[in-house]
Design a protein around this nucleic acid. Structure first.
Length: 561
DNA sequence: CTGGGGATGGGGCCC
DNA sequence: GGGGCCCCATCCCCA
């Protein structure tokens, strides 16, 4: 673009958000630039104030109040959150830095409670959705909706400890220590009451989940109970669920169905490291899938605040939150999302190659097993893909149904025609010899009409233009001679066959060659020896093309306009 | 530049 | 509704 040209260009970098999160996660795991440490029952979790403020209403209000009080947090702070189970806190941090919530189903309630306490609404909604609960399920629910306020105040902290953590004296000690600051009021209430103000860059990708389900008695269990497998993670031990490069892992989405195609490390390691992960099932999957989903049926859901989205009626079609593309088909959005994350959960155990989809891995495995399930009926060739066989069969048939509308070169494959048309050669030919028949040049052939142009010739011309019988009957006349006549139905049939393969334009331009080809074909069949029978159409086509090129030079002056 | 094989992503169908 | 499986279109790579 020229410097003087005005107008803004928006260049999207879809991977930026993931990379940013990945780098932040790396910093968190290594303790770099961490200015906040969260503690829970002895476990310490270094983190970043900005990230926590972005993802948590609680911290947003907390740090916002600090700034309002002139204490723009510059120092290293420690926040003790004993009311959040260490595993749950770990999972929530993992979510904050990877946009993926990875938790054992047995720890769902802990995570729910932690998310509620910290005001991570989308996680709370997701957990609630999985647990079949609603935000308005019970009176306790109303209580929990005030939790962000509660956490910020000493009085509220005591209330939480007494009401919800009655079994844990340690939880009563829940003390927040951010420097020396104690906050008795915060804007969190308004934030929580107005989920529209949930601009977390992380949670923005997570669609709010419905909260319209009937009350559930399970809400009674919403208290801060100790985790059975409480496994406090110490400094440096965080991020165990993150991949080596910190990339987002949707490890649970699909699992290779074949024995020798194992999931990648992220899943297998999880399963081995944490037995509870084995109990993880579709619930978690559903949680993430739905959280990443924007339903077209509810277009406002994408921008709707976390926790306030209505129950999604249908997940098909769905809109990708990254590229806004509409994805059709139930359950296809997670598959599509991996094209943005670059995630390749399916790894070949033989060669290590990874794939985004298990069906692609399955096909890949055929290379190792030697399985080629698509044999050619005409030759010993076998193929991995059905469409490879289809392409191959065109070699036997000699069919070249895709003709370049500019230079009239025919191709057996549509993509080859497309490549040809994008290439320079075709453009040169166009400028050199714009020998268009009137029916092709002017009507309906725009620059974008690739599909029409690349359609097989038998389908290319509209019926108003292409009448096989009329074309055949008029071939001779087009060549300047009398209309073609056919000695018998067989010859006529051959003519139709050739017409279908080569197109009436080519035949009409070179009727002599067409007739010669018919004669050659007929004579060979009469001899009963036609080794090139199947290839003959292609050979003829080449002959016509060669001779046609010669004739084109002569025709050019009169066809040029 | 072209032919051919393979990889990738989306959609349809079905369970 | 989610996921497996398949087909298709398209792109990439190599000879």
């Amino acid at each position: 673009m020229s410097p003087g040209e005005d107008g803004l260009i928006g260049i999207p970098f879809p991977e930026h958000s993931n990379e940013l999160l990945s780098h932040l996660n790396d910093q968190r795991r290594t303790g770099i630039l961490c200015d906040l440490t969260l503690t829970s029952r002895g476990a310490r979790y270094p983190t970043h104030r900005s990230v926590m403020a972005a993802v948590s209403l609680y911290f947003r209000g907390l740090f916002g109040a600090e700034e309002a009080g002139g204490e723009v947090g510059g120092g290293f702070s420690v926040c003790q959150l004993d009311c959040v189970a260490p595993d749950a806190l770990d999972a929530l941090l993992e979510f904050a830095y990877t946009a993926t919530l990875t938790i054992p189903s047995s720890g769902m309630r802990d995570v729910l409670r932690g998310a509620q306490l910290l005001g991570i609404q989308c996680v709370a909604d997701a957990c609630r959705d999985i647990l079949g609960e609603t935000a308005e399920a019970e009176g306790e629910k109303t209580e929990e909706q005030r939790i962000p306020d509660q956490v910020t105040g000493t009085i509220m902290k005591e209330e939480i400890s007494i009401k919800k953590v009655s079994r844990r004296k340690t939880d009563k000690r829940m003390v927040k220590k951010i420097g020396s600051n104690h906050i008795n009021s915060s804007p969190i209430r308004s934030l929580a009451a107005s989920p529209a103000s949930h601009p977390s860059p992380v949670s923005d990708n997570f669609r709010s989940l419905p909260s319209t389900q009937p009350p559930s008695p399970e809400q009674e269990e919403l208290h801060c109970k100790p985790r059975q497998n409480g496994n406090p993670r110490v400094f440096g031990g965080l991020g165990r669920r993150a991949t080596a490069n910190g990339s987002v892992r949707h490890w649970h989405q699909e699992r290779p169905p074949i024995a020798h195609a194992a999931p990648v490390q992220s899943l297998s390691d999880k399963l081995s490291e944490d037995d509870e992960m084995g109990s993880l099932g579709d619930d978690v999957l559903r949680m993430e899938t739905s959280s990443m989903t924007t339903s077209l049926a509810d277009p406002g859901a994408a921008s709707s605040p976390a926790g306030m989205g209505r129950k999604r009626k249908s997940q098909t079609p769905q809109q990708c939150p990254v590229c806004q593309k509409i994805i059709h088909g139930a359950g296809k959005l997670p598959r599509h999302m991996r094209t943005h994350t670059g995630e390749k959960p399916f790894q070949c155990t033989t060669c290590g190659v990874r794939f985004t989809r298990n069906d692609k891995l399955k096909i890949h495995m055929r290379k190792h097993t030697g399985e080629r399930p698509y044999p050619c009926p005409h030759c010993p060739a076998r193929f991995l893909h059905s469409y490879d066989l289809k392409n191959h069969l065109s070699l036997h048939s000699g069919a070249r149904p895709f003709e370049c509308p500019l230079c009239h070169k025919a191709f057996a494959r549509e993509d080859h025609l497309q490549r040809h048309r994008k290439g320079q050669s075709c453009l040169e030919l166009r400028t050199r010899r714009p020998r268009r028949g009137p029916e092709q040049d002017e009507d309906g052939r725009g620059d974008d009409g690739r599909r029409e142009q690349s359609s097989p010739l038998s389908l290319q011309a509209p019926s108003s233009v292409f009448h096989p019988h009329a074309v055949l009957e008029g071939l001779g006349g087009l060549a300047g001679g009398p209309p073609l006549t056919f000695a018998n139905e067989r010859e006529r049939s051959l003519a139709f066959q050739a017409l279908a393969q080569f197109g009436h334009q080519s035949i009409a331009r070179y009727p002599e060659l067409f007739l010669r080809g018919l004669e050659m074909h007929e004579s060979r069949e009469m001899e009963g020896d036609d080794p090139e029978r199947t290839l003959m159409p292609a050979l003829q086509r080449d002959r016509w093309a060669d001779e046609g090129d010669e004739e084109n030079g002569e025709e050019e002056p009169e066809e040029g306009d």
